[in-house]
Design a protein around this nucleic acid. Structure first.
Lengths: 115, 115
DNA sequence: AATAATACATAAGAATCTTATACATAAGAA
DNA sequence: TTCTTATGTATAAGATTCTTATGTATTATT
């Protein structure tokens, strides 16, 4: 199967790690496919994360020490459950702060009357 | 001179054309260096657009028919004033809609209580 | 006289994502 | 029962956007 693009908007570029970290912050442990489905539901189909974006991002977060992995068998299929490490929890806070700052800055630029 | 990075945050990736279009929407005509300075002031130094990002972006917007150029001499120096075309004005609306949608979607993902 | 600011430009490399492909099991429809 | 869809992970080529660095030249400041 092929999952269509994250969004036609280029603005999502750079947001994927923030999304992953925040979801893991809320749901304790999740596996990749579960993350794509959760995001699809939460955004009413607006945002579809592709495997080509997701799995490399998860592997990178793991390599950086922000995620721990636990492999589980469900029937004959594998699931790789990811969980935040302590530094991963701290990184989540940082990323959410960056997102809030980004939104504030962009709103200032785009709607200077409200600034 | 070297101008430091757009921001330490990766979230700005993909936002530059939106910023350029909006500024040109507000200021009728601007030249490249002026855009970098305006952004720096408006964001209190938070966002510093590099030449390596700016000029290719301007050239691309021009090639796509969203900007018209007018070269002016000031003393012995060149300035390339950019101005929105009609399709550029429409594209500005689209980009601003995309930004609003992006912010809404990210807030839903990151702060589901408020959604 | 030297440095910083103004003003443009491009090019190599990094990072992130798209698009496509690959493999495999389970469930549902024809 | 066979075909398609859903579940589940993975990688690789290419596109896009930005960083970092360099290049050229004029004007203002120290």
């Amino acid at each position: 199967m092929y999952i269509c693009s994250m969004s036609n908007s280029k603005l999502y570029k750079g947001s994927l790690t923030t999304i992953i970290l925040k979801l893991l912050n809320q749901h304790d442990k999740m596996y990749g496919y579960e993350i794509t489905q959760k995001v699809k539901v939460l955004t009413n189909g607006e945002l579809n994360i592709t495997e080509g974006a997701l799995y490399p991002a998860l592997h990178k977060l793991e390599a950086e020490g922000f995620l721990d992995v636990q492999i589980m068998r469900v029937g004959n299929r594998l699931r790789k459950y990811y969980k935040l490490t302590e530094t991963g929890a701290q990184e989540t806070v940082n990323k959410l702060d960056e997102l809030a700052e980004y939104i504030k800055t962009m709103q200032t630029l785009v709607n200077p009357k409200l600034a």
